[in-house]
Design a binder for these strands. Structure first.
Lengths: 239, 239
DNA sequence: TAGTGGTCTAGACCACAGC
DNA sequence: CTGTGGTCTAGACCACTAG
């Protein structure tokens, strides 16, 4: 059981102070010694102490102010990193074969409704509707809009055999994204496509991504039934 | 419209390189000049360049290797920060008054089932069931387990008037957390408590938090109906 | 005004990994 | 072996702000 954490002075100082914060012996508001003082305590230069404290500040564990010094921060907000996997990877994690089927594809101009939730834009959108299967069962319905102004290559690409998600990611890096997760009641074509009774509960995940130039894509995943779970985790920084 | 970003040499270098990555002129795999070279280019010391590149590496935009140098990383995984707000804050954001009502409270030993999903532990659990209302309408059912070994003060605290969430956060800092989000079908007492018809779709968020000493609390929020949305965002680091 | 963090320097030695 | 990043030093000046 070798400690995989690399040894270095600033990591030692970082872990030492973080330990005091996390075990409660330094409660929120606790005043931390000045950099110069810690440099003497740890027998190192001020820059080394600064690196450790700057990292703690970036991670939200302490707050630093000139003149008044560093104090332990209030408990951070409940936050966690949400990992949105590729649908194919999600199916693979279940140990089932993944199948993909394009249901519909068309080009149309952006409507006012699109612009409202997706951002201001000009030009046409590519609208896709596709089904992901896990084994023989419908797993997830994918409804996607692609901004053809931002990704003109999409107009001449066939998504009949490959899902657009991975292709898009490689094509256009995004700089901003939002996700909305909610429960919905499946009705009409959504229910029938997913092989569900009308009125069944489903999990819906909507992701919108932007570039510096504007919207790239909006995709809505509707997971069949109540078995699918989105997970998010928080783990402390590796010291 | 003053730029709020502070000026410094390492921030300039960071923003400069990040700009090339995000606008696509430096695609994944692109080789970045060595620190010593960049130091000459920007007319600064190597340490300053190192700070900029280390930050880019920590943010996942580049990968750094000894001898072979720094290259632009493959597009990062689809990840975003999930902000789980306090229920009271969520209700307040709707512009409605928040009411809280404790429905049940009891102490019981941990079962095998608890240990399976919550982590190994000894001793008793405090089991709470409470309802949050937005205005006059049921908003969210909170079902919580508190590890009394980790938080013995909870045994002598009344949660009749105040939700346990904020109290716990102030009481015991957590170091690890997981969240599971899924759609469920409300049945039985859950449906009746939330004033829903049996079979209605709901969003269920389960959060489990741990200390260094073991489990702290597990809480399941069941949001009434399909109107509630959990959101997650990704925004690039402020340069 | 003085104490603190923010940044920068011009070196240095080491660890690691291609060659 | 050698080029690269990882870390560290012993200073320095500046910006900000609490007293």
């Amino acid at each position: 059981m070798e400690p995989r954490t690399k040894s270095s002075r600033y990591r030692t100082i970082h872990a030492d102070i973080l330990g005091h914060i996390l075990d409660g012996s330094w409660p929120p508001g606790h005043h931390i010694a000045a950099e110069t003082e810690l440099a003497v305590t740890y027998g190192c230069s001020r820059m080394t102490v600064n690196k450790a404290l700057s990292q703690l500040a970036a991670e939200g564990f302490i707050e630093r102010r000139r003149r008044s010094g560093s104090v332990v921060a209030l408990p951070r907000a409940q936050s966690a990193v949400l990992d949105i996997q590729d649908v194919a990877a999600e199916v693979a994690a279940l140990g089932l074969p993944h199948h993909y089927s394009l249901l519909a594809s068309r080009t149309r101009p952006a409507t006012e409704n699109d612009k409202e939730h997706f951002g201001d834009m000009e030009g046409d959108l590519l609208e896709l509707r596709a089904l992901h299967l896990a084994g023989e069962q419908p797993f997830c319905l994918e409804e996607r809009l692609i901004n053809l102004t931002a990704v003109p290559e999409a107009a001449s690409t066939s998504f009949a055999d490959n899902p657009p998600g991975a292709w898009l990611l490689a094509q256009v890096p995004w700089t901003e994204a939002t996700h909305d997760i909610r429960a919905i009641v499946a009705t009409g074509s959504t229910a029938s496509t997913l092989d569900l009774a009308a009125g069944a509960a489903c999990l819906e995940v909507t992701r919108r991504t932007w570039n510096r130039t504007g919207p790239i894509t909006e995709v809505r995943f509707t997971y069949a039934g109540t078995s699918h779970t989105v997970t998010a985790r928080f783990t402390p920084p590796g010291n």
